[in-house]
Design a protein around this nucleic acid. Structure first.
Lengths: 131, 131
DNA sequence: ATGTTCATGAAAATCATTTTCGCACCCTGG
DNA sequence: CCAGGGTGCGAAAATGATTTTCATGAACAT
């Protein structure tokens, strides 16, 4: 559990270039390609460690891909939101209807007596460009 | 891609004993324990293959556990529903509010112009007994 | 019988991820 | 200045779920 990494900025910089979610492996090869000004790129282990920590710290947003891979991107400004993934091009769109979902979740909690409710709502489809 | 398996009934029978979701590994050891009337229990490969096929055929319902394991149980009678998983005891409760969610999904589709929408809504919490 | 099909088990292969381990570095106190 | 503790790092091994490969034998058709 490292507290910070010399690669934080590289990773955050890369993620900042787009709003797409990316997997560890992809981030790793991207950083290796760039080979930022002579420095060695981080090892795969380090990318995993760093992404894990940044996600824990709430800096990164994570999403479980259909294939079982964990994807990351910068947290938006909005406190809580969901994502709509284009199955064809991988583009991700933010979903505005957070309140509607949290209301549903709340009602479900009341229905069932469950506490400490946590939920994830993952949408996928074909974006206008791809369909 | 087998079309059917001599173990279908064993697996379906086991799953029919409870409404809990179970992983392949668990099903495999349960079947091995039972050792139904002298027959050899299925191999792990076969359990995986069979569960995969049954899920494809719509006979089984699947759920992605927080730990990344795929869990299965018999499909209920209702065509579409969601689940609430107790993080402590693994119990799963059915969620009735399907229409509310599909309405939200539909509105999202209209908002964004995405088509072929598919979604999953996974809830977890602590059941009344565990909290 | 001979061939073909096909589910099966065992073991190897994958794939994403985590852990281990030794090393190099940096800092701080002596 | 130097020893010692802490810490990030890379490489490789370990893990764990799942998938694939491959040889086999049973069942069925010709």
């Amino acid at each position: 559990m490292p507290r910070m990494s010399q690669y934080d900025d590289d990773i955050l910089g890369l993620l900042g270039q787009s709003t797409r979610f990316r997997g560890c492996q992809e981030i790793h090869v991207r950083l290796a390609e760039r080979r930022p000004r002579g420095r060695r790129p981080p090892s795969l282990s380090t990318v995993y460690r760093t992404l894990y920590r940044l996600a824990q710290d709430g800096v990164l947003d994570t999403l479980q891909s259909p294939g079982g891979e964990r994807l990351y991107r910068l947290c938006g400004t909005s406190s809580r939101h969901h994502h709509l993934l284009c199955r064809a091009c991988g583009r991700v769109e933010d979903i505005a209807r957070v309140e509607e979902l949290s209301e549903v979740a709340e009602r479900i909690g009341q229905d069932t007596g469950f506490g400490e409710l946590d939920y994830s709502f993952e949408l996928s489809g074909l974006c206008p460009g791809c369909s």
